[in-house]
Amino acid sequence: MSDTMHETMNDRTPVIELKHVDKHFGSLHVLKDINLSVQKGEVVVIIGPSGSGKSTLCRTINRLETIDSGEILIEGTKMPQEGKELARLRAQIGMVFQSFNLFAHKTIIDNVILGPMDVLKKSKKEAKEEAMQLLSRVGVDSQANKVPAQLSGGQQQRVAIARALAMHPKAILFDEPTSALDPEMIGEVLDVMTKLAREGMTMLVVTHEMNFARRVASRVIFMDGGSIVEENTPEEFFNHPKSQRAQDFLNSIQAH
């Protein structure tokens, strides 16, 4: 890698690594022996039909879903199961949800400063200054004193991204970030995500936006029935899908 952004740290240690991860919901085997790693600066996009386990996979990484067996490592450290250690590791991994999940009782600026103040123990002044910079970076600084319900979905999701960035995460997980948005708002959120990717943010993105995957992904992972079926560069995956299931999936979404 001829990357100047990466510092001395061992570049071979993945930011996120899953080893033999298994999970059941009752009798349903939702994750089957998942092995996956995300290197620093990579944008890994997970696609697949609904019910394939991609959202669940994303949510296991910061333990919003527990796993039955296997290991999840963040920069080589095993994800703890509870307590302060778990919280400390969660703070290093940002998360952006399908339904935004902005804190409904707080203003936009207070949404962004809560994490830095409560977890990173920053002063209100410092947290606010940075929050305003982040909000202007995602283009919603003019809305800082409104509450989430007063914003459009696209604006809310951009605030959610700013909220994640405020924690200076090592990676950000995006769990179908545009699936709850009207078509005209999808673009504004994808633009912010593309910008982030270009700036070198490590990202794991579960999405149905194939164009985004094609343009931005370093790697595409195709999931079906709880397993990783295929893993490849976007060009290879979209132009020459190897597995029958990936071919069927791509045909079904390109049919219209």
């Binding site: 910061n62 919003l64 919280a87 703070a91 804190f103 409560d118 959610a160 924690m167």
Partner: peptide, 24 residues
């Protein structure tokens, strides 16, 4: 989702409850 968002920021359980869940 409110609780999950707070958890994913790395907030401890009592903070999640007192600062995010209970006020709402």
């Amino acid at each position: 989702g409110q609780k999950e968002a707070a958890q994913s920021l790395g907030m401890l359980p009592h903070s999640v409850f007192l600062k995010v869940v209970f006020p709402q």
